[in-house]
Design a protein around this nucleic acid. Sequence first.
DNA 1: CAAGGCATGTGATTTCAATCACATGGTGCT
DNA 2: AGCACCATGTGATTGAAATCACATGCCTTG
Lengths: 232, 232
Amino acid sequence: MERNQGCLDCPARGKHLFCGMEDASLTKFDPLGTIVQFGGGGVIFREGDNCGSVHVLCSGRVKLSATSREGRTLILKIARAGEVLGLSAALANQPYEVTAETVEPCRLKTIRRQALLDFLDRNPDASMRAARAVAQEYKAAFAEVRRLALPATASGRVAGLLLEWSREQAPANSQSGRCVMTLTHEEIASMTATTRETVTRVLGQLRRDQLIQIRGAALTVLQPQALERLAV
Amino acid sequence: MERNQGCLDCPARGKHLFCGMEDASLTKFDPLGTIVQFGGGGVIFREGDNCGSVHVLCSGRVKLSATSREGRTLILKIARAGEVLGLSAALANQPYEVTAETVEPCRLKTIRRQALLDFLDRNPDASMRAARAVAQEYKAAFAEVRRLALPATASGRVAGLLLEWSREQAPANSQSGRCVMTLTHEEIASMTATTRETVTRVLGQLRRDQLIQIRGAALTVLQPQALERLAV
DNA sequence: CAAGGCATGTGATTTCAATCACATGGTGCT
DNA sequence: AGCACCATGTGATTGAAATCACATGCCTTG
């Protein structure tokens, strides 16, 4: 069991927008809330729940999804360390918009909504960071709308998703379009508003056309331009 | 030509999130930027443009849209007075995500990005309001994703849009599902990821099935529950 | 190793909506 | 009034992808 380190000496501190606030603010932030550990597959909160708390994701990945009554599921994104889950719901004073579910063991700092709002009120640089963090979320949500609504075909939506992955996982060498597919075809379908079978077929086709290469979970985008043409 | 009134005595001041800041902050906010008048059909900024300024919409309506290279257009929403256009792009320090185009004569207060950021840094209550405003935008963008991606059919997406209109235009008496359709079928198609013809057919079908009533631009939702079943 | 469960691959069929093509209807202009 | 222009309505055809159905392959676990 690791030591319950504080925010000030968090190794990821500088890497994340909200967590990177000034020492003075972070010192006041640190004692707020409680650290919670989750295993894989745990539900942090559900869509429609009253937003009682926000959750700073310290480590691990979390799946954000929404479900229709008919059982269709839309996966919005996989959140990573440094994201503040439920922040926008807390600020807008609305129920959670999505369901948050851990996909692997995670560490979270959970803070009561009102405690966070009070903290933000008193710490201007933190509230600016909160605003910036929500703006980032907005940008991502908007990119999602675009990816879903603009391409005319299912292949286009899948291609767009693959491009996004290869871009966000691209290290310094922006050439190699290598990335890791951690999701099943079923889950990819939920991110592209299509079905599992169609994802299988589209990936197969892209592979046959030499636009991508798949070896196990390793995916390499061979021809980004061609994918972009598909994704429009 | 109307008097160039300030923010402090703006009649809409209390009605909008960002504009409703404290007197002290608003007094400092007022002299920033310049008031600009637009006719209908003017372009305030374009998708991909560098975000040099943000624009507070004082009056009028503005269409926010994104276009693919192929020419497909997605209308995200019609912004109303009180919204701050480009705020999230300014905070995230990114190019504008959308194109903003007036649909009727509009009055805007245009402020240089850096001037706004400086102002927010110095006025905590304003930055909290900015954060809340972006959170609202986020919520709307998310609802958009949901409306576009969850319904399995085009009818579902259109039904979802009609429901949203009837809800947001509903006055105190939440019963009457009356609202005004200011958009053409073409534009509705751009908001629901479908085509003009399909919108015409879907609206016709809904009317024949007595789920809605259309008289000119006046639309009445007769059976909200039935629409929700469609929209899922 | 056997066996069950889950992920993936693939064919056949059906359904939905895009597309193309044209008719109708209203509005504004001159 | 007459014409042009745009929005709307509607049929016919086509194409893409959902759906259904089943085979294969892989990993876990008793």
